[in-house]
């Protein structure tokens, strides 16, 4: 027997183990959320996902609400909308949520919530500004944009377990701290960027991405990290030929969205001016540029010559443990088939 809940009068079938929010989202219904993330789970803190449930006192947070058969839920009653508006207005009033140059403009969950609630300017202002923290190598923290949703903290302590971020202080002075409230660059933070990936607003941003592109100017390409053997799945956010930022692919094997400092920020070596751009041939006083034909002919001729003079085993090749499978396959094919030797190996042991 399938079980139903009624969202705004519409019957929707649900499976056990899911929350009302999950059921709603799977059915294409928008309920704003700020502190909820699939990976950090329900926190019930921001209160923006509240709904009204027939027969239950008070508004319920849909992120933590377990559906039961026949449950009648209102997601857009006046009471619900008033509560959500109050929450979003309070957040807007107590920070500096200036979207104009914000890196997250267009991908901001607070902006989305305000948009859907029709809030153009906050209803009131109570502002105290804090310093931005740009002390770390790759991450900028802007406490004025922080809505204290706690996703970064759950990420840092529960997901990557680097144990750097935490809530410090309390009441409206609560803030996200690094270690004993140190600037991020002086803390034990290893810049894995989990906080950046989980942040719903612009409180954690990538230094390298600043000013590079608006969110809608980039497209994403999924690929595999070029560093260690875990093989993390990356989403490259690309504008033209430029990687603007890198994020981990949520829900993907093997990394489930996580990355490390190298995978997330170590991408721009490909744009280095040091890249070798033409084939080079050594001469008495150094290397000179050459055409492909000249260089390849030289290699082929020398290899043939050595093979003929000293036999195929006088040639040897080392393939790359960095390069793609297809390159390694062709390397061994070259040596086995063309040269006629099994002198092929790679740098497996470093």
């Amino acid at each position: 027997m399938s079980k139903n809940i009624f969202i705004d009068g519409k019957p929707i079938t649900f499976e056990d183990g899911k929350t009302v929010l999950q059921v709603a989202r799977e059915n294409g219904l928008y309920i704003p959320t700020l502190c909820y993330h699939a990976r950090t789970g329900p926190a019930s803190m921001c209160r923006v996902c509240v709904v009204e449930v027939e027969g239950m006192r008070g508004l319920q947070t849909s992120c933590s609400l377990t559906p039961s058969d026949g449950m009648k839920i209102q997601t857009a009653s006046q009471r619900v909308l008033d509560a959500r508006k109050a929450v979003v207005n309070l957040l807007l009033a107590n920070g500096n949520h200036d979207c104009l140059s914000c890196e997250v403009n267009g991908a901001c969950e607070l902006q989305d919530a305000a948009y859907h609630l029709g809030i153009e300017t906050p209803a009131f202002f109570v502002k105290e500004y804090d310093e931005r923290d740009a002390s770390a190598a790759f991450i900028i923290r802007d406490p004025n944009k922080c809505i204290l949703c706690g996703r970064c903290i759950v990420g840092c302590n529960g997901q990557v377990v680097n144990e750097v971020l935490e809530f410090g202080y309390r009441d409206s002075h609560t803030k996200v701290i690094c270690d004993a409230d140190l600037p991020m660059g002086l803390s034990t933070c290893v810049q894995c960027g989990e906080c950046v990936q989980l942040c719903p607003v612009g409180a954690f941003i990538e230094k390298k991405a600043v000013g590079k592109a608006r969110r809608w100017e980039t497209h994403t390409v999924r690929t595999t990290c070029p560093y260690c053997g875990v093989g993390c799945q990356l989403e490259l956010h690309v504008k033209g030929e430029q990687i603007v930022r890198v994020t981990g692919v949520e829900g993907a094997e093997p990394n489930q969205g996580h990355l490390c400092v190298k995978g997330r920020y170590g991408y721009d070596f490909i744009y280095s001016d040091d890249r070798i751009k033409t084939p080079l041939i050594r001469e008495a006083n150094g290397f000179r540029e050459a055409s492909w034909d000249e260089a390849l002919d030289l290699v082929a001729t020398k290899f043939q010559q050595i093979k003929q003079e000293y036999g195929p085993n006088a040639l040897a090749g080392v393939s790359s443990a960095r390069s793609i499978n297809e390159d390694s396959y062709y390397m061994q094919r070259l040596f086995r088939e063309v040269v006629g030797t099994n002198n092929i190996d790679h740098c497996a042991r470093v």
Partner: peptide, 17 residues
């Protein structure tokens, strides 16, 4: 745990003597 991104692949592909 493999140290390099494609050590496994290089072995799999026969870049071994």
């Amino acid at each position: 745990l493999r140290g390099q991104n494609n050590v496994q692949g290089a072995c799999d592909m026969g870049a071994l003597p």
